[in-house]
Simulated scan of single mutants.
Amino acid sequence: MPRQSTVTEVRLNNIIAHLTPIVTLLTELNDAFSPPFVPVISNTIPSLINAVQNVKRNKKECAELTEKVPRVLYAIINLHIKSETAGSLPPSLLNHVGKFMETLHKIYVFVEAQQDGNKIAQLFRNNEMSNLLKECHAGLDQAMKVFGVSTGAAMFNDIGDMKKGANYMHEELLAVIQTLSDASTISDKSLVYLGANDLRNR
């Protein structure tokens, strides 16, 4: 009889399910607008997913830490979509995205260290790992506050809600990209038209 997953393992699997669609959103956001820090964040998420999948120790701590990450990431993506200049954030917010990028890297280091025989864990003393965990939580709490993520409410009630939310955000992002593409096409046609008129008038 197969071993039943613990509550913490279920939480970790749900976190992976929440993180996976974010990779696509971040990739498309980056391809369309190349916003600062997004490429690094986008590259870190698959590594974090892999680390979460292979956690062997401190699973509860890893779950408590990483389950906030998708909520912050969705908030950051949404800010890029809803901003006055699509895909661009004001400098003050960009600074906080950069800080979250640093926090995300620390989270990855902590989770990665919870695997059997991990070299990172061998380099860290227990108190250093404890300090790293505190820094991760502090950075996440700050990000949730700055990006307006509710600390009380769950991001999605279940995986079905998560998929609907991710799909909706994906459609919003594609609509913004399409709108900008259409505007660019109209602008290009206008330039061609003006150029043709200019030639006729010479």
Rank of each mutant, 00 (worst) to 15 (best):
A138N: 09
F156E: 10
E135F: 09
L123F: 12
A143M: 01
A153D: 12
S130T: 14
M144P: 10
K145W: 13
G148S: 02
L132I: 07
M129P: 01
A138Q: 10
G139N: 06
C136A: 10
F124T: 01
A154Y: 02
G152D: 07
F124E: 02
I159P: 01
C136F: 04
F124N: 02
Q142D: 15
A153C: 11
D158H: 10
N131L: 13
M155N: 07
N131M: 06
M155S: 08
V149R: 00
N127E: 09
L140E: 11
F124C: 07
R125I: 02
G139I: 05
V146L: 10
M162Y: 03
Q142F: 03
E135S: 15
H137K: 10
M162P: 02
H137Q: 11
K134S: 11
D158F: 06
D141G: 05
D158I: 05
G139C: 14
F124L: 14
N131P: 08
V149F: 00
N126G: 04
S130I: 06
M144R: 04
H137G: 02
N157D: 12
D161H: 05
R125H: 07
R125F: 11
M144Q: 13
V146R: 10
R125G: 11
V146A: 10
D158S: 05
A154I: 12
V149Y: 00
L133Q: 13
T151G: 12
D141Q: 13
G152H: 14
V146E: 12
G160Q: 10
N157T: 15
L132N: 04
L123Q: 05
V149M: 04
N157E: 07
R125D: 02
D161K: 03
G139M: 09
L133W: 07
Q142E: 15
K145D: 13
D141H: 09
L123M: 07
A154P: 02
G139V: 07
A143G: 07
L123E: 04
F156C: 08
L132G: 02
G148C: 01
M155F: 08
M144T: 02
L123K: 11
E128G: 06
V146M: 08
E135M: 12
M155Y: 09
M155V: 04
D158V: 08
N157L: 10
L140T: 00
F147N: 01
S130K: 15
G160R: 09
V146G: 14
T151V: 08
M155K: 08
A154N: 12
M155E: 14
F147M: 00
G148N: 11
